[in-house]
């Protein structure tokens, strides 16, 4: 009988670098979009009330954009751009395949919650055998290394 294959779970440093790459992409896109919208609003001289509403909508749009980014990639290929660069995937713990959209949304909520108290939600990655953090527990996922070439 052949020995069972070993699955390498991705560690905290690798995941942190991937998250930084994703954050960079999200912020650059948001910054460019925000700058364009801000310039237009400035040129139009809108009232303060409308300006406040536009800012609130912009904040909400930013949140939706960030959530959509993660949810789309986790639920389709299991790899965000950062994960593609660092070569790992987010998969469901039981089926080992990309997760569904609701679970991806749930995982994104876990990601936000993990970051709020000094990234405490990610610390368990250091101490658990399968390197799982709060987002993984909430969405029942694991993060595993892949050998997929970038190009």
């Amino acid at each position: 009988m052949a020995p069972p294959s070993v699955v390498p779970y991705t560690g905290l440093v690798t995941r942190a670098i991937a998250l930084a790459v994703d954050a960079l992409i999200i912020h650059v896109v948001a910054l460019v979009t925000g700058t364009v919208v801000g310039l237009i609003v400035t040129a139009l001289h809108v009232p303060d009330t409308v300006d406040t509403i536009i800012k609130a909508v912009g904040g909400a749009a930013y949140l939706v954009w960030a959530a959509s980014y993660f949810v789309f990639f986790w639920s389709t290929t299991g790899q965000t751009t950062g994960a593609l660069v660092m070569r790992f995937r987010v998969l469901s713990d039981n089926k080992r395949e990309p997760i569904s959209v609701p679970r991806a949304v749930f995982r994104f909520v876990g990601l936000i919650l993990s970051a709020i108290p000094f990234f405490a939600g990610f610390w368990p990655v250091l101490f658990t055998r399968r390197r799982r953090g709060l987002p993984d527990w909430m969405a029942n996922t694991v993060v595993v290394d892949t050998d997929d070439a970038l190009l």
Binding site: V6, Y9, G11
Partner: peptide
């Protein structure tokens, strides 16, 4: 962290069997 938490006799770092077993 394994040294700090005195985890011994467990699989190598970040390694496990597929399928969650």
């Amino acid at each position: 962290t394994r040294r700090a938490t005195r985890r011994r006799g467990q699989p190598g770092p970040g390694q496990d069997l597929p399928g969650g077993a």
